[in-house]
Amino acid sequence: MAERLRADLVLEYPFTRTTGPVIGAFLTGLREGIILGIRRPDGTVLCPPTEYDPESSEPLTDLVEVGPGGELLSWTWVDPPRSQSPWDQPHGLGLIRLDGADTPMVHGLLVDGPEGLSVGMRVTARWRPEREGHIADLKGFVPEGADQ
């Protein structure tokens, strides 16, 4: 029997994506410490914002500030953290509907354990001190009133 051969294969690349005006504005907001949504013709607000309406595909342009507080619509617990993610500790992952937005966004939940999470709880944004315009400028969300 011949030797079974194997080798590590790592595919790695620092993709740099141009953002266009809407994604760029959202990321600019994160860098400046605010969260933006975008208004649809029916007045509802998408967060995170897309350049287009998810149903009609027509352009959207009216960016509005939302959050930083919101409601946790769903959660799970990630332990161990995934190696490429921005988190190096076990953490929650949640669907968070920010105040002023009508759709939830996916982001991390910074609590000690899953027992600290429940659907319907109020959460609020926590920011990284150094921000560059990236979704991970938002460190994640913590229970409202938590003194972190």
């Binding site: 141009t18 953002t19 266009g20 005006p21 994604i23 760029g24 350049e51 352009p59």
Partner: peptide, 13 residues
Amino acid sequence: TTRGDVSLPGLVR
């Protein structure tokens, strides 16, 4: 070389 003014969705749209 670089369409620096658009996102991927912006480019295809």
